[in-house]
Amino acid sequence: MIIPPRYWLLKLIIIGIVGICLYPTSTQALPVFGLRPPTLYKGGIGIELDFKGDQSSASGLSDKNQYFLITGLFYGITTDLTLRANIPVVLERRVGSKSSTGVGDVVLLSKYRFWRHDAIGAQDALTALVGVKLPTGKTSVTPSLGSGAFDFIMGLVIGRDSRRWTLSADIQSVLKTEGSNNIRVGHQFLANTAFGIRPWLGEYTDPDFIIMTELNWRGQLRSTQSGASLANSGGHRLFVAPGFTLIYRNWGLRGGVQIPIYQELNGNQRSDDYRFSLVAELHL
């Protein structure tokens, strides 16, 4: 089905907003797969280790598995502006019998909180995100470790973090440029909502445990090669993602599994079986 361009623009905006919310750049007790509104305190340094993976399959195509270890480094320039670098190492990317390993595409991000409302035990915030994915992953191996292209990331996240519960929503757009083999992967749009609740309320020096549930939507336009649209590309995915966050003083651990509940993919493509993420975070 061909969607008129004006609807694509609307979709792009909606997806962009949602995607921002989903992008993992936050520093507090919020989503695993989505974005989080808070920024880091001025002069603060954060280190994150994110072990993530996914599996996808389709009839007539070999299964695809991949596992990453992403090192995230972030720094609070001001209380409202946080800079971040994500350095991914592809531990294994396997398609059928072929696999590759190495450094993937590095992502540089800046997050700016332009609105904040503080209350006793709660904070509301609206944060914008801008970033770029660099073509640092090798494209000469099979399967490729990177796209060979620059991607531009924009997003917006709104959220409320209170003592008992947390709520956030974000949109994000990832605008792709032409990479290796004259392929331009379709622009990507993401939208997320996340809800978390603390079953037990502790104090600052107690472990802080939050049960999370997220709804993640991923939409992608068709990819092109030398300007020609590729039939087996693009589509929509919707995931439900149960997860958790555990914080102890300046240490954090969060994890979750994305379970696909709806997938509408163009042509013959691998559909997602699952995705997971386990993140350890330290603030200095």
């Binding site: 904040r116 209350a119 035990g121 709660a122 904070q123 020096t205 914080i247 603030h283």
Partner: peptide, 18 residues
Amino acid sequence: MVIKGMSCPFCAFGLEKK
């Protein structure tokens, strides 16, 4: 003091550090 905006240990850690 009474401080507004703190909801989790990460918040308190940042404040304590400052």
